[in-house]
Simulated scan of single mutants.
Amino acid sequence: MNSHTDPIIKLTFDECWELLSADIVGRLAVVVDSHPEIFPVNYILQRRSIVFRSAGGTKLWGAESERPAALEIDGYDPRTEEAWSVVARGDTELIEDQAEKDAVDALQLEPWQPGPKDYYIRLTPRALTGRRFRVNKPDVWNTRTTDRRRASFE
């Protein structure tokens, strides 16, 4: 089939959770002073929510204010030549209960960035959406060497 006519396939709720559980890094989007900010975060899933750690700053401010946020992950499978994307939108909250923090630590959530990340933040999705689609086949002669699609013929 021609990728221009291939449909975009909406992922089920469970497929979105499966992709989230198979990944560990996403992009967190929050609104600060009426404009969007995006931060990479490493995360774990706990009880159908997304948990990450943070130092003080914008992410913490958003969680303390129980602000809405979104987390997005995406990927590409060179075997199937399909790309996918999952977006979780919901509210953030600061985890203050030590037993909850211990439960998160037991799931091995370790910050990647050096420095103290003493604050545990939970994003509880109110909406979880995803899609999968076939990508255009790369042109072996014209596709950049850094393009992930090249893996299908290398």
Score class of each variant (00 low, 15 high):
1 M>W: 14
4 H>K: 04
5 T>I: 14
5 T>F: 08
6 D>S: 15
12 T>G: 10
16 C>K: 13
18 E>N: 13
19 L>W: 06
21 S>W: 01
23 D>E: 06
28 L>K: 03
28 L>Y: 13
29 A>T: 09
33 D>S: 03
38 I>F: 12
38 I>W: 14
39 F>I: 10
45 L>P: 00
45 L>V: 13
48 R>N: 10
48 R>K: 08
48 R>F: 03
48 R>C: 04
49 S>C: 11
51 V>D: 12
53 R>E: 00
53 R>M: 01
54 S>G: 12
58 T>V: 04
58 T>W: 05
60 L>K: 01
63 A>S: 09
64 E>I: 10
65 S>M: 10
65 S>K: 08
66 E>L: 06
66 E>V: 10
67 R>F: 02
73 I>H: 07
75 G>I: 03
78 P>K: 02
81 E>K: 07
84 W>V: 14
85 S>I: 13
87 V>L: 14
88 A>E: 13
92 T>V: 08
93 E>K: 06
96 E>A: 13
96 E>N: 03
102 D>A: 07
103 A>P: 02
104 V>A: 13
111 P>M: 11
116 P>A: 02
127 A>F: 03
128 L>R: 09
134 R>E: 09
143 T>Q: 12
149 R>S: 14
149 R>V: 03
152 S>I: 07
154 E>K: 15
154 E>C: 12
154 E>Y: 08
154 E>F: 06
154 E>G: 14
